[in-house]
Design a protein around this nucleic acid. Structure first.
Lengths: 139, 139
DNA sequence: AATAATTTTTATCTAATGCAAAATTGTTTC
DNA sequence: GAAACAATTTTGCATTAGATAAAAATTATT
């Protein structure tokens, strides 16, 4: 099982490769706001645990295992962002909150949250009713 | 700001005092499943940060600051348990999930989740509709 | 007073990070 | 194309939060 921090790295690497075609130490360091040396160290660990193949100074690619995990992590992240956005959490809180909780929810909870997102997307009236409750106490 | 781990301790201490009238090192160690020595160390830290008053070998009591924080933490914990229970997360996952995420949500998110709990408690039909969605894919 | 239970101290461990210096790779200039 | 310089990556060492384990200190019980 990957630790929360390992999950962060896998997720970001997956996203970078998906959008740019490759991932470099410095990209990751910038995104995660950590030092390059920390990235190198984690990459070496992820290689040891076979989430990616690493050749020093030359880069790395996700293994099948890494891709599979990465895909799920990205799905989970996006679902949680969707959810918080739908229930009306302010934009500036969403990223940090998702970042904080994504590693700590069982897949059972993730599934139920998925249902909930579907519930609200399926019928606008439901969201309107929720918004109405939110407006009440603002007075 | 207390760290996640500090929050765990404050929350449990608050609960113990609330239900038993006092909190001892060994109770906390048992509840949190850590060693007594870890508890002592954290209690000393919480004393330094003025969440509680500590006299070695004699026990400790929450300060006003500690009580205030503890009360909010307990409220937040219960709200999150309510929420996961309502949306149908299995009992055996609820405690761990709440334990994991409670320290990582902004109060903005907590407020919105509060609205959501109210939304479902207010009208049974809404919950029925959600359950209906959940049943769909079970087939 | 002797023994048991609890609490505390000390030393050690792990995961993750930071910083500085060294190694490697990339780029420019001649 | 080679030498000089720049950028990136890696290594080694230090640090932090939190936990463990075993031994020492204190308090409680018989």
């Amino acid at each position: 099982m990957p630790t929360p921090s390992m999950e962060d790295y896998i997720e970001i690497i997956y996203n970078l490769i998906d959008t740019k075609g490759y991932a470099r130490v410095s990209d990751i360091a910038e995104t995660l706001e950590v030092h390059p040396s920390s990235v190198t160290k984690m990459v070496q660990k992820l290689d040891k645990d076979e989430y990616l193949l690493y050749e020093k100074y030359r880069g790395f690619m996700l293994t099948e295992k890494g891709k599979k995990v990465g895909e799920r992590l990205v799905f989970r992240h996006e679902l949680l962002e969707d959810f918080l956005e739908i229930i009306g959490v302010e934009k500036e809180n969403i990223y940090n909150d998702v970042e904080g909780i994504e590693h700590h929810l069982s897949w059972n909870s993730i599934d139920r949250l998925g249902d909930l997102v579907k519930y609200f997307k399926e019928d606008q009236q439901r969201l309107d009713d929720l918004k109405e409750i939110q407006l009440r106490k603002k007075k």
